[in-house]
Design a protein around this nucleic acid. Structure first.
Length: 970
DNA sequence: CCGATAAACCTTTTT
DNA sequence: GGTTTATCGG
């Protein structure tokens, strides 16, 4: 284990640089130092040093940490070295920004909303919403109301893929310090939304330089070689050749920069403003705040109230993990600093939380940002009044964790190309302080392995490592000893891979524990609870099927019982007992009791239900909906399992931050790119430095007067000027490697990614042979994971009947990919959505209980001639007595008294003229014909591009049946 | 070197 | 549906 920042810290002596940081308590200090250099160790000692001064009390010192658990750990370490007890430090401000903001608001926040022109008040009873799902639910409720109140923004609603993207936008703006007021925007908020042309122009110029000494076109011009392809722009867009110049032109005209930047965004800003402001009002009225709003209101009242500022200030401010702070947090730190005794500690190379609004420039550009943020804050009042010219940088160059070989390879990772064509700027290595290892010996192994069974390869590697003297690690006394299971950590980028690995490890009885977030609603206790709720709700087959299967009934028996409704007596009695209970929490507890679910999962589920129950009233139907959404969204909850005595740890790289292990296996370096393709961007987003932009537009110009979604050509050009950087992916790799003390292994599958090939590491083949582990002999820990039962043939098991995500996944993957073994399965049997649509269409007494069903209702209720745009459509069709369901999104469904028209616009000729898409259209066509008997049904797919429309013909019913039949499982 | 086409891919997580 | 890389032909 590491020598310095460990539990037995009292025996350790700081090195000279650390001593300098610990002793220099007055003035501004920046420590931007690598992993294992004892930053946290030094901060802890520094804090102890400060509070041991007679004139200083703990309440004079603010120490900010990244997580609550880090705060607790910090306190424990301080107690060891200061003349204070844990009890005396209990209320000391050693906490996260969020919880400190919460404290400020609880005490002084009553009037904070009024500074923005909001009516509400923040009181001691105002709740902080911690659960993302809970907030999503509340936001949806708000948005439904907002949509009704503001029909003038209809064009924006149409372009959205989901309302949740607006919630994300609000969160991002709050982290950037952009707040709405009753009149407009707070302070310089609007300027930030407008963007910064000069800063943009720099980025534009950087990518618009001809390459290879002028012989090769610029990266930007190259990037626009497919401008307008597969897209439709409004007529004001320039043609591709207007934009790029004629063949042989090497760069874009300077005027283009001005043209793309300047766009009338008045309406967009008005929409975002009203949405943001009214959501704040909604939250206050419902008496809750989210994490972002905590910081927002704390910032506002500190800004507006000089007396409070005076009161809230600290004599000393220290921030750990500074690379993970956001812009608003940097500014909060300045407002809270009463003197220039400011100390920030971090490592720019370990900034991997940009999705959480962390801004790595806070640490890289510390000096400039400090000056410019202070100037912003001081523009109209003296808010930050200490001298900030003297900034002392303290380098820490001694690494107490890893061997020199590991340190060197980790730095290589920072300049390893992420794709075969990427040109990495190696000059960043100039900013890397080369660390010196003080490991007592360096027997480092660095190896890469590649095998198609990469899960097995990982386990096989673990087997090979444990007890093997070739991979000796450092014992507590510094001597060599053979490795144990507990010395090894397996890091993955995705939880999914970790869970798969756990499943396979379970087969071999491997001593292995997963640490981190779990998709709670996809666990067995949640599924059982959902099943019983559905039974209570409507005696639903999907509920009974699960319960019966769980009780051991065979599929045939289940079928029979469902058909006859002859449920076992004990189950009926249990149901009736549940039915008499009012509170959903009590129902859940009773269900878990019945099945003996007393583990971590059940606890967290109960806790979650309790949490939503506290903030909203919760009926059974709403709980069903909540769990269904949780399943759909893959919502995760942290599970704290006791790690066990001697077991391998599996965790995501993100979760491993701050930890260290003798041996690290970086798994899952396969399946194409380690840096994933960027995927779908939100329709409305904020991006530095171009400000607030809209990706898609909505307008009505079409020969047939059909509305259509258009792309924003300016946005398409703008984002090519801000090319995707893989720096954060490299930093992720860096973080993973630097967790290791002694050995690092990299394992990839069939198709290894570029990192695995480009890292200067020996790449070997591995022949995975995994043997069952004798757990008696090794005294294993309990597996924290239940082994998942295989899903079986999709569409047939009760589990798949009730699990919407299975239905969705299945529908998607099977729709587009032909099974290589020729066993194509193109059929979805019995989805609940299907049943609902059918029942509703037949006029039965049913009401919608989820998003899909509401949309079906919208679709069918549209007979008056309403126009529905971008509506998901789920339609059933019988083929040879088998039910076929197809789901998708049609661009336009137009229903009048005597016609039904459905139109799907496609943009990609090479893909969308394929039979699969024609089949999709054909199903729409024939089903609508059945539903709307007597109506004239038109259905069409158009290939559209720059105003052209080419119809794609549907299949005849006979051809459709043939296609569907050929895809059925035999 | 440039443009067109085909094919593969689709996170991470804390407050 | 959208984005990115690989590949091929001129």
């Amino acid at each position: 284990m590491s020598q310095q920042p460990s539990e037995e810290a009292e025996e350790l002596t700081p090195n000279d640089r650390q001593r300098q940081l610990i002793d220099s308590t007055e003035g501004i200090y920046l420590v931007d130092a690598g992993p294992g250099t004892g930053k946290t160790f030094a901060v802890t000692r520094r804090y102890a040093n400060i509070i041991d001064q007679p004139a200083v009390d703990p309440e004079d010192v603010l120490l900010v940490t990244f997580t609550r658990s880090a705060a607790t750990e910090m306190k424990e370490r301080i107690v060891d070295h200061a003349d204070y007890s844990m009890r005396q430090l209990a209320d000391a401000p050693i906490q996260t920004f969020h919880s400190h903001c919460h404290d400020i608001l609880r005490e002084h926040g009553h009037a904070a909303p009024s500074h923005l022109g909001l009516d509400g008040r923040i009181t001691g009873s105002t709740q902080v919403i911690e659960d993302e799902l809970v907030e999503t639910k509340l936001f949806r409720e708000f948005f439904d109301q907002f949509r009704d109140d503001h029909p003038e923004y209809a064009d924006f609603y149409r372009a959205l893929s989901t309302p949740t993207e607006l919630l994300e936008l609000v969160g991002e703006l709050a982290a950037k310090g952009v707040f709405p007021t009753a009149e407009g925007w707070y302070r310089d908020g609007e300027a930030i939304l407008d963007g910064d042309f000069a800063a943009f122009k720099e980025r534009f110029d950087a990518v618009n330089q001809p390459r290879n000494g002028g012989s090769k076109q610029s990266q930007l011009r190259d990037g626009l070689s497919r401008f307008g392809r597969n897209k439709t722009y409004l007529p004001d867009a320039p043609s591709k050749s207007d934009l790029r110049g004629s063949r042989g032109t090497k760069q874009l005209d300077d005027a283009v920069a001005r043209d793309v930047f300047e766009e009338d965004r008045t309406d967009l800003k008005a929409f975002v403003h009203d949405l943001y402001f009214e959501y704040l009002a909604f939250a206050l009225q419902r008496n809750y705040l989210n994490f972002g709003f905590l910081q927002l209101f704390a910032f506002v009242c500190l800004c507006e109230n000089p007396q409070l500022r005076e009161k809230a200030r600290f004599e000393y401010v220290m921030v750990d993990e500074f690379q993970d702070t956001s812009e608003i947090q940097f500014k909060l730190a300045l407002l809270l600093a009463g003197t220039d005794n400011l100390c920030v500690v971090g490592d720019w190379k370990q900034s991997i939380y940009s999705f959480q609004y962390a801004d790595v420039d806070n640490i890289i550009e510390f000096r400039d940002r400090l000056a410019s943020f202070a100037a912003d804050l001081n523009s109209d009042a003296d808010r930050v009044d200490f001298d900030m010219d003297a900034i002392e940088r303290i380098p820490l160059e001694e690494n107490y964790r890893s061997t020199q070989t590991l340190i060197d390879i980790s730095e290589e990772a920072l300049v390893t190309p992420a794709t075969s064509s990427e040109e990495v700027d190696t000059s960043i290595l100039d900013d890397v302080v080369n660390l010196n290892s003080n490991a007592p010996f360096d027997n480092t192994t660095l190896a890469g392995y590649q095998h198609e069974d990469d899960h097995e390869a990982v386990l096989s590697l673990v087997q090979d490592i444990v007890g093997n003297d070739d991979y000796a690690v450092r014992g507590d006394d510094g001597s060599r000893r053979p490795p144990r299971y507990e010395d090894i950590a397996v890091f993955t980028r995705t939880r999914d891979f970790g869970r798969e690995l756990m499943d396979i490890a379970a087969v071999y009885d491997f001593p292995i524990a997963y640490d981190g977030g779990v998709e709670l609603f996809r666990t067995d206790p949640a599924k059982l609870l959902l099943a019983w709720l559905r039974i209570l709700d409507s005696d639903a087959d999907r509920g009974w099927a699960v319960v019966l299967e769980q009780a051991g009934y065979t599929l045939d028996e289940v079928d029979h019982i469902l058909e006859t409704g002859d449920y076992p007596e004990t189950m009926r009695t249990f149901r009736d007992g549940l039915d008499s209970m009012a509170a959903v929490g009590a129902i859940a507890r009773r269900v878990f009791d019945r099945y003996g679910c007393d583990g971590d999962y059940a606890d967290v589920i109960l806790h979650t239900i309790q949490a939503i129950h506290d903030s909203t009233t919760l009926t059974r139907g709403e709980l069903i909906q909540f769990i269904e959404r949780g399943i759909e969204a893959g919502a995760t909850h942290e599970i704290h399992t006791s790690a066990g005595e001697d077991s391998v740890t599996v965790q995501t790289i993100h979760a491993a931050k701050g930890l260290e292990y003798p041996i690290v296996i970086l798994a899952n370096m396969n399946d194409g790119r380690f840096p994933p393709s960027s995927g779908n961007s939100p329709t409305i987003s904020y991006q530095d430095p171009v400000g607030l932009r809209q990706r898609k537009l909505y307008a009505e110009i079409d020969d047939h007067a059909h509305p259509h979604v258009y792309h924003n050509w300016r946005y398409d050009v703008l984002r090519k000027c801000l090319p995707r950087e893989y720096d954060e992916e490299r930093r992720l790799l860096y973080v993973a490697i630097t967790r290791a003390e002694n050995h690092a292994f990299f394992v990839g599958g069939d198709d290894p990614n570029t990192f695995l090939e480009e890292l200067p590491v020996a790449l070997d083949q591995i022949d995975p042979v995994v043997e069952a582990v004798d757990r008696e002999a090794t005294a294993q820990a309990e597996l924290p994971f239940a082994v998942r039962t295989p899903d079986g043939p999709i569409g047939h098991t009760p589990h798949s009947l009730m699990d919407d995500s299975v239905f969705d996944d299945a529908g998607e993957s099977r729709e587009v990919s032909a099974d290589p073994d020729g066993e194509a399965r193109g059929i979805d049997f019995g989805s609940r959505v299907h049943d609902f649509a059918e029942a509703y269409a037949l006029g039965e007494d049913v009401s919608p209980s989820n998003e899909h069903e509401r949309r079906i209702v919208d679709l069918l209720d549209g007979l008056s001639g309403e126009l529905h745009v971008e509506e998901p459509v789920v339609l059933p069709l019988d083929v040879d007595g088998e039910r076929v369901t197809i789901s998708g999104i049609a661009d336009l469904v137009h229903v009048t008294a005597d016609t039904v028209e459905i139109i799907d616009y496609k943009t990609d000729r090479t893909r969308h003229a394929q039979p699969e898409y024609r089949k999709q259209l054909s199903v729409y066509y024939h089903v609508l014909s059945e539903w709307f008997d007597g109506c004239r049904v038109n259905a069409a797919i158009f290939y559209t591009s720059n105003g052209n429309r080419e119809p794609i013909e549907p299949l005849s019913l006979a051809d459709l049946r043939a296609v569907v039949r050929s895809q059925m499982p035999s």
